[in-house]
Design a protein around this nucleic acid. Structure first.
Lengths: 353, 353
DNA sequence: CTGTTAGCGCTTTCAC
DNA sequence: GTGAAAGCGCTAACAG
C-alpha cells in the first residue's frame, strides 16, 4: 500500500507514454482496495453504489484500460480461439469467418487466424503454436493438412470443424452444409432443364465424395436411365477445372451440362469453354458450388449452390462455446441446408439428348 | 519448494485433462530451480550442458508447453499485433496479409485480425478492444473509418498504415505502392496502343486521387494534346464500376479505353460492356488495378497493375518491428514500385481516334 | 553457473 | 461490503 501511494501520482491523461494505469493505480486514486476495483470491473453486485461511482470516476480520470492478458492468466484462459485455414488465397471461407467473428465478438473472444499453408512453408507447427498461445479452442476451417495435430489438440481444448468432415473424431463437433443435398438441388435443376448428357467435376476429400454422390444418386433416382453420366477429377482450383473440362469436351459424348465441385473450378470450365468456342449457357450449362462473391459478379453470373457459410460459421462458433462448458459431450453435427442460386449459366440444352 | 515437491506427482503423459505442466513441474522433475528451466527455455547460455539436457528431457516427459500468456505478462508484451481491415469481403488485402503474416511469424508474433466494418455494426470500438488485449502494435490495412482511434492508438503503441495514406500522422509509418506511377504505367500502355479517347474511373480517398493524377498527368505529358479525357467516380465496388461505365458509354465521345480504379470496378465495367454489346478488347480496352486473383482468372484475364501487396505487407511489418525499438523515430514511408501485368483486356482501338 | 526473491496485472479465497 | 493475502506461469533482478 505504501508504495502504491507514492507511485500513484502519475496521473495519466498526458499524451505519449507513461506506464499505463493499472488496477492498483485506480484503487489508490479512488481510495479503495484492489478488490473493490476488480469487483466493479466485473460488475459484481456486492459493492456500495457510492464506491462504485468513485471507482468508475477514477478509471476515467486515469484512462484506465483493463489488461485482458493479466485477467486471462488469472482465469486460466486467453479469450482467443485459433482459426486454422488451409489457404487464405481461396476466399470461399470469407462468410464463414464473418459468422465466426460475429459470434465470438459477442462473448469477447478474438479469433487468432492462421494460414496453415504458410506455416507449413516455414516449417512451423501451426497447432502447437496456437496451443502455446493458450487458445481456448480451435476452429478448423476446411480440409486440414495436419489431422494428427488436430486430434492432439482435441485432447486438451474444444475443437470444431467448419466446412469439412475430417478428421472425424468423437469429441470434435462439425458444422457443414449438406453437400449431398446441395448437389442434388443442382442436378435436379439440370435435369429439369432437359439435360441428358451430364458431367460432374469432382473435388477432393469427403466433401468431394458427397457432392459426387448427390449428383449420381439424383440422376439414378430422377432420370430415365438413358442419361450419359461422366465424372472427372478436377481438384479445387481454376486450373484443375480447366483441365477436367477439356477432358470432358473430348469425350465421345461430351456433356451439355456440368456440375462443378466449386466456383473456382467453374471458372476453369468457363475458360475451357472459351478456348473451345463453346458458349455458356447456349452450348453448355454450368453450375458451381459455394456461391462465392465470384459467382455473383455480373460478368460471371454463375448459377451456384449457396452453402450458407455464414450460418455454418455461426454454428461452429456456438459449438465451440458449448463444448467449452461440457468438454466431454458427444459429438454434434450441424448440417446446413444449402439452396440453389439460379443465375445465367444454366439453361435448356440447345439440342435435346 | 516444499509444496512444489508435493504437487509434482501429477506426471502427465496421460491423455485427457490433468492440468498442464508448468515451468515449476519441469523444475521439480529435473531437480533444478525454476530459473534454470526459464533459462533453458529462452536459450540463455549460462546453463551447464548437463542440466540443460536434464531439463529438456523433463520437458519432453511432462509434455511441457510454455505459456506465452504468462511470458507476455512478465515481459509486458503480448506477442500479438492488431490488424485492422475495413472490409474482409473485398479480398484485395489477401497478399498483403500474407506478407504481414510471413514477417511476423518469423519473430513469433501473431496477428489479431479484426474487420472494423463488422465491429462497427455491433457498435464495438475496434481499436479499444485491441488495446485492451495489449497488442504490441497496430497495422491498419486500407482506408479506415476510425482515423481518430488510430491516432489515439499511435500515442501508446507503434502504428503502421498499409495500403493507405491516411490518416497521415507524424509517428505513423506508411507502406503503400506508388499509385501515381502505377496509373502512369497503365496509361502509357493505353497511349502506346493508340488510344486517344480515354477515361478513368476514380476511386475514393487519397489513393483514388493519386491514381487519377497519374492518369491525367501522363496524358498531359505524353499525349499530343488532342486526346479526349473523361473521369467518372465509381467507388470501389463492381456496382460502382458498372454505373460509372454506363455513364461513360453515354458520353458524347465515349472512350475506347478505360483505366479503372481497381479490379473490382473493372469487373463492373466488363458487365456494363456486356450490357451494351461492347466487346473487350475489340470495342473497349480496360485496365484494372491491384492485380488480384480475379484479374488472373483466365476467363477474365484482366490487364492490371500489380501493386506488390505482399512486399507492401512485409515492409509494413518491418516498420512496425523497427518502431517498436524506437517509438519516436520520424515517420517513414515505403512506396513500392508497381508493375503492369499485361493480359487480354487491352489492345489497339478498332478505329483510330 | 545456480537458486532466491520479487514482481507483471488481475482474480480469488477468506477473514473481517 | 470490504480488504489482505495468495496465486495464475513466467521473467528478472540479485546474491551466492
Amino acid at each position: 500500500m505504501t508504495d502504491d501511494e507514492s507511485s500513484t501520482r502519475l496521473d495519466m491523461a498526458s499524451p505519449t507514454g507513461r506506464r499505463a494505469a493499472t488496477i492498483r493505480d485506480v484503487a489508490a486514486h479512488a481510495g479503495v482496495s484492489k478488490s473493490v476495483v476488480s469487483r466493479v470491473l466485473r460488475d459484481e453486485p456486492n459493492v456500495s453504489e457510492e464506491r462504485r461511482v468513485r471507482v468508475r470516476a477514477a478509471m476515467d480520470e486515469l484512462g484506465y484500460r483493463p489488461n485482458s492478458i493479466a485477467r486471462g492468466l488469472s482465469e486460466a484462459r486467453s479469450g482467443t480461439v485459433g482459426v486454422v485455414i488451409n489457404d487464405l488465397r481461396n476466399p470461399w471461407y470469407v462468410s464463414l469467418l464473418e459468422g465466426l467473428a460475429t459470434t465470438f465478438d459477442a462473448v469477447d473472444i478474438a479469433p487468432l487466424l492462421v494460414d496453415s499453408r504458410l506455416d507449413h512453408q516455414v516449417g512451423r507447427d501451426t497447432v502447437e503454436t496456437l496451443l502455446s498461445r493458450q487458445v481456448d479452442g480451435l476452429i478448423v476451417v476446411g480440409t486440414t493438412d495436419a489431422p494428427v495435430d488436430v486430434e492432439r489438440a482435441a485432447r486438451s481444448i474444444p475443437v470444431v470443424l467448419a466446412g469439412t468432415l475430417e478428421p472425424d473424431l468423437s469429441n470434435v463437433d462439425i458444422s457443414v452444409d449438406d453437400d449431398v443435398a446441395g448437389a442434388r438441388m443442382a442436378t435436379e435443376h439440370l435435369l429439369r432443364l432437359g439435360h441428358r448428357r451430364l458431367a460432374h467435376i469432382q473435388g477432393p476429400g469427403m466433401v468431394g465424395t458427397l457432392r459426387r454422390k448427390g449428383f449420381e444418386e439424383t440422376i439414378a433416382a430422377q432420370g430415365d436411365g438413358g442419361e450419359s453420366v461422366l465424372v472427372e477429377y478436377g481438384g479445387t482450383t481454376e486450373e484443375g477445372g480447366h483441365a477436367a473440362a477439356l477432358r470432358l469436351f473430348d469425350a465421345p459424348h461430351p456433356p451439355t451440362a456440368i456440375l462443378a465441385y466449386n466456383d473456382m473450378t467453374s471458372l476453369g470450365v468457363m475458360s475451357a469453354a472459351d478456348d473451345r468456342g463453346l458458349s455458356i449457357p447456349a452450348d453448355l450449362s454450368l453450375i458451381g458450388y459455394d456461391d462465392t462473391r465470384l459467382a455473383s459478379l455480373r460478368h460471371i453470373s454463375l448459377t451456384s449452390v449457396d452453402n450458407g457459410n455464414f450460418t455454418v460459421g455461426v454454428q461452429a462458433a456456438k459449438f465451440l462455446l458449448q463444448r467449452r462448458e461440457r468438454p466431454d459431450s458427444p459429438q454434434r453435427v450441424y448440417r446446413h441446408m444449402p439452396r440453389l442460386v439460379v443465375r445465367r449459366t444454366a439453361s435448356a440444352p440447345r439440342v435435346e439428348g
